[in-house]
Simulated scan of single mutants.
Amino acid sequence: MNQVDQRTVSRRDTASPRKPQRKNGREKYEKLLDALEALITEQDSSDISLANLSQVAGVPAASVYHFFPSVDASLTALAERHYKFLSDTLLCHSEFTRLDSWQDLLFQVFERVRAYYEENAGALKVHFGPQSSWALRQLQMENHWLLADTLLKSLSREFELPPSQDWRERFMLAITINDSFWSQSYSRFGRITDEIAAEGKRAASAYLKLYLGELLQRRQRRFVAADAPVY
């Protein structure tokens, strides 16, 4: 491995948090993330230091540096917490209402994610803020794939999708298109505005329309009577 490769690996290592295995370590880890959430809500990530995080959390500096080799690592850990909560609470096993078209479902997914960012300043800042470590970019991509899986599962349940092995990738690219509009809105206004959110929806749906068409046939649902015999 040459010196350039070593420096790249080193940067990646310092941008990734070290997750605790023991109960005591997990409690400190979550306490640090709570403190980071409070800090990043009130100030820019560039103004946060690990020493400051240690002081606010009341956790020894040695523990902070053990879990987070850098501020980037702490931000990655906070992003991971938000992505997991978003997935577990808002998207998985969710029912979508008033689905007259595949576009309705797409827009509802986008609106649920946007609402989460509006209610959680920490999530908004770590996702769209100026920090862009390798570990955080990888985590953001994993989140896009997760959203794509949600779309694929939900659309397949409600509509007849044309045969293709590429739907997961198409949905991920549509999510990335929409995300780029949100990122521009955050850079300009510090939030996702209604106007730019609407433009992101149009761009993402226009891309998917190239492959899905304007309309999809609704999937036929089979209902079984409650008193029907089971064989």
Rank of each mutant, 00 (worst) to 15 (best):
Q3A: 14
Q3W: 15
V4R: 15
T8F: 14
T8D: 02
R12G: 07
D13R: 13
A15C: 10
P17R: 08
K19L: 15
K23G: 05
N24S: 15
R26T: 09
E30F: 06
L33G: 07
L36R: 01
L36V: 02
T41I: 06
S46M: 09
D47Y: 01
S49M: 10
N52S: 11
N52W: 02
V56M: 06
P60Q: 11
S63T: 15
S63F: 08
Y65P: 00
H66G: 01
F67C: 14
F68K: 01
P69W: 11
S70L: 05
V71N: 02
A73D: 05
A73I: 13
S74I: 08
L75C: 05
A77K: 07
A79L: 11
Y83Q: 14
F85V: 13
T89D: 08
L90G: 01
L91C: 06
C92K: 09
H93A: 09
S94A: 12
E95W: 00
T97V: 11
R98V: 07
R98T: 03
S101H: 08
W102E: 07
L105R: 05
L106E: 04
F110D: 00
R112N: 09
R114F: 06
E119P: 00
A121R: 14
G122W: 02
L124M: 15
L136D: 07
R137D: 09
R137I: 08
L139P: 01
W145P: 00
L146M: 09
S154M: 01
S156L: 01
E160H: 09
D166E: 13
R168K: 11
S185F: 09
Y186H: 11
S187L: 13
S187P: 00
R188P: 00
T193A: 10
A198D: 02
A198W: 06
A198C: 04
E199L: 15
R202N: 06
Y207C: 01
L210V: 08
L212M: 14
E214Y: 06
Q217N: 12
Q220L: 15
P229R: 03
Y231D: 14
